[in-house]
Amino acid sequence: MRLTLHVWRQANSAARGGMVTYQLDDVSPDESFLEMLDKLNEQLIERGEEPVAFDHDCREGICGSCSLMIDGIAHGPDAATTTCQLHMRRFRDGAEIYIEPWRAKAFPVLRDLITDRSAFDRVIQAGGYVSVNTGSAPDANAVPVPKADADAAMDAAACIGCGACVATCKNASAMLFVGAKLAHLARLPQGQAERRMRAKRMVEQMDAEGFGACTNQLECEAVCPKEIRVSVIAAMNRDFLRSSVF
């Protein structure tokens, strides 16, 4: 495959960035998107140029490190797929591909395609935990959890915190992420004691980080690699209302 890549290059967070165009030949349809970028970087290094910086870690679709806005879609065109699990056979030979970092005030670009997503960490630190010493693992049947609640909590806990919801949202809102982190604790008995305080604190931190507000366009749901549903946002709204007003 022969590709034309338009890649965002930015030396550091203070520098002005811009799109730079590269030609890349001999791309195998079996390569992953990140392997294709590795190939581009090998060529750049051989030419004595700076390689393109991008986040990656497990390359198995479970760690949440990889990002990339590919032709305007977070994690590219495949549903329920992270960038590292996206393969080049999804693109046609001769394709032009636009590759950009997540764009949000709360996710400043550090270099090229890498953004600082520690705003998510600070939201979690604000209340995304259960603050009791859990000791050793109890018997699984010691605390009964209805199957529907266990399933819903597990679905929400699938969030890998990649930030695709923020990146794709027209308002750069983090409500799918925060909703998921709240929902996976709110559906379990262990999460009840701090439930209302957690919702209030995490939403306050989310606002303080400069994320936008949800306008119910469901773009986040469409690109989330873990298929988190916007029902977690409705659940967050309920818990926030209870903690703030009722």
Partner: peptide
């Protein structure tokens, strides 16, 4: 809210797509 939402993305994407909104 709209002003807050616009401020949340100061730099727009070069290539923007809409999936289902």
């Amino acid at each position: 809210l709209q002003l807050r939402n616009r401020a949340a993305r100061p730099q727009p994407y070069a290539r923007n797509a809409t999936v289902q909104a």
